[in-house]
Amino acid sequence: MEFPKDLKYTKEHEWLKVEGNIATVGITDYAQDSLGDVVYVELPQEGGAVTKNEPFGVVESVKAVSDLYSPVSGSVSEVNDAIIDSPEAINEDPYGDAWMIKVEIANPGELDDLMTADEYQKYVEEEK
């Protein structure tokens, strides 16, 4: 299982990559593995607002529906439409091709309580 060092992580198993005032958001390797085959994903519209710790979309495996929680508040600057047509990319490349949304960060202070890769790895091992 992979935990890239350059990302930040949430307890809901989303990852976030910060470049300037833009955060790219996706779900972790652990999350995709727990879900199993992803068959459907629902993402917000470009320009829409997301709020930290609030659902911004839905990911569905064959068996189950799971909410996606935003790690930060802000407005959605870009949506990865490609994964709507190919949700299996979420299983294949959760940290790469299968990023979900880019958010213009409203309040950089919200990033402070996110986990580092090491902290998240420990968190996942305890959850197992």
């Binding site: 199993g36 085959d37 495996s61 064959v62 068996k63």
Partner: peptide, 20 residues
């Protein structure tokens, strides 16, 4: 296998993946 509780049993819900 990933094991889940089903009807009082510990059963395999999937091995390589449901679709495969």
């Amino acid at each position: 296998a990933r094991i889940v509780e089903f009807a009082g049993w510990e059963m395999p819900v999937q091995y390589s993946g449901v679709i495969e």
